[in-house]
Computed example of a mutant assay.
Amino acid sequence: MSTREYAVITGASSGIGAATARLLASNGYHVIAAARRADRLAALAAEDQNIEAFTLDVTKQESIDSLTAHLQGKPVSILINCAGGAFDADPINDSDPEIWKKTFDINVVGSVRMIKAMTPLMQAFGRGHIVMISSTAGHRVYENGGSYVAAKFAETSLVETLRLELNGQPIRVTEIAPGMVKTDEFSTVRFKGDAEKAAKVYEGVTRPLVAEDVAEAIRWSVMLPSHFNVDCLMIRPVAQAQVHKVYRQPL
């Protein structure tokens, strides 16, 4: 890159976001690693001089406004919306509507806030790429995942709508939809800290995807020639044939 372009990554304090920050930084981008946990961001930024930590809460407009002000005049060319998560595993009739609100605010509305903030910076730079980290859950429903599935379907719709609305502008829009990815926190958060339940999600799966696998899919997508857009890239471990169809080694 003749100009060191800026890549803004939300949810960068752990998992896919942190892995993507490391990979893009190693490929020459100036990475804005944004998340709520400042201590983890500081440790991440200490690994590579191309990573800059920025404390951000995507559910707070004033927090996003602060990031936008910090980036004014900078060559922002990439936004990767990684912030998100699942916060329950309840049947719809037993679910808490407040969890649904939280799930949508972080996964969907937070992404909208970021898109609205970063798109003008890309337009000022002359081109850009918006990447949504969704899920295979945004393409196929499953039981006891109502709040998360609904949010991920909304993200898929958001990406497809945005691509139509930005048509004619030099801004690419990509959805990366991972299946089973084993990270330190996703299932633990979903099961409210119950490590035993979280471990059962991956039980018998010899090689689930890991955060670095998804980061590589993101890197490939954003480093393609600027006329080449990946609309949707769905990735799964070989053991997972569909959301609900996973081969598990006998115990």
Score class of each variant (00 low, 15 high):
residue 127 R to M: 04
residue 182 K to T: 01
residue 125 F to N: 09
residue 64 I to H: 02
residue 127 R to E: 02
residue 171 I to D: 03
residue 64 I to F: 06
residue 229 N to H: 03
residue 238 V to Q: 00
residue 222 V to R: 04
residue 250 P to S: 10
residue 135 S to N: 05
residue 243 V to S: 05
residue 75 P to A: 12
residue 45 A to S: 15
residue 184 D to K: 10
residue 49 Q to A: 12
residue 56 L to M: 12
residue 122 M to C: 08
residue 171 I to S: 03
residue 183 T to E: 14
residue 103 T to P: 01
residue 29 Y to C: 06
residue 198 A to S: 11
residue 130 I to W: 04
residue 189 V to F: 00
residue 142 Y to F: 15
residue 157 S to C: 13
residue 192 K to T: 14
residue 243 V to C: 05
residue 240 Q to I: 11
residue 191 F to M: 09
residue 213 D to E: 15
residue 49 Q to S: 10
residue 43 A to N: 13
residue 103 T to Y: 00
residue 12 A to M: 03
residue 37 R to V: 06
residue 173 V to M: 08
residue 215 A to F: 06
residue 22 R to D: 02
residue 40 R to N: 12
residue 8 V to A: 03
residue 70 H to K: 13
residue 119 T to Y: 05
residue 47 E to T: 14
residue 200 K to A: 15
residue 80 I to A: 11
residue 245 K to Q: 06
residue 202 Y to E: 11
residue 40 R to F: 09
residue 250 P to Y: 00
residue 19 A to R: 00
residue 127 R to V: 02
residue 171 I to R: 06
residue 233 L to K: 04
residue 192 K to W: 12
residue 24 L to P: 00
residue 112 V to C: 14
residue 26 S to I: 07
residue 90 D to Y: 08
residue 42 A to V: 03
residue 189 V to L: 04
residue 178 P to Y: 05
residue 242 Q to P: 00
residue 148 Y to K: 10
residue 195 A to D: 12
residue 22 R to I: 06
residue 67 L to S: 10
residue 26 S to P: 01
residue 14 S to D: 08
residue 48 D to I: 14
residue 62 E to C: 11
residue 209 L to S: 15
residue 123 Q to T: 13
residue 143 E to C: 05
residue 234 M to F: 03
residue 28 G to A: 04
residue 63 S to H: 04
residue 152 K to M: 03
residue 69 A to S: 11
residue 251 L to R: 13
residue 196 E to Y: 06
residue 80 I to E: 02
residue 22 R to S: 02
residue 19 A to S: 07
residue 135 S to E: 04
residue 83 A to F: 06
residue 114 M to S: 10
residue 148 Y to Q: 13
residue 60 K to W: 00
residue 216 E to C: 05
residue 186 F to N: 10
residue 97 P to Q: 02
residue 175 E to G: 05
residue 220 W to A: 10
residue 22 R to E: 09
residue 47 E to Y: 10
residue 72 Q to T: 06
residue 242 Q to R: 11
residue 211 A to L: 04
residue 219 R to P: 05
residue 134 S to F: 08
residue 248 R to A: 14
residue 120 P to G: 11
residue 112 V to K: 14
residue 24 L to N: 03
residue 242 Q to A: 13
residue 92 I to H: 01
residue 229 N to I: 12
residue 237 P to R: 14
residue 185 E to N: 13
residue 78 I to H: 05
residue 167 N to Y: 11
residue 165 E to I: 14
residue 214 V to S: 08
residue 18 A to F: 05
residue 105 D to V: 01
residue 69 A to K: 11
residue 128 G to K: 14
residue 183 T to W: 15
residue 14 S to N: 09
residue 223 M to E: 10
residue 111 S to F: 06
residue 104 F to C: 05
residue 225 P to C: 13
residue 40 R to C: 04
residue 11 G to Y: 11
residue 83 A to H: 03
residue 221 S to T: 15
residue 165 E to Y: 14
residue 236 R to F: 12
residue 131 V to L: 01
residue 9 I to E: 02
residue 7 A to F: 07
residue 217 A to F: 06
residue 241 A to E: 11
residue 50 N to W: 12
residue 118 M to W: 07
residue 117 A to T: 13
residue 134 S to K: 07
residue 96 D to V: 14
residue 74 K to L: 15
residue 13 S to Y: 09
residue 123 Q to K: 13
residue 69 A to M: 08
residue 75 P to L: 09
residue 129 H to M: 13
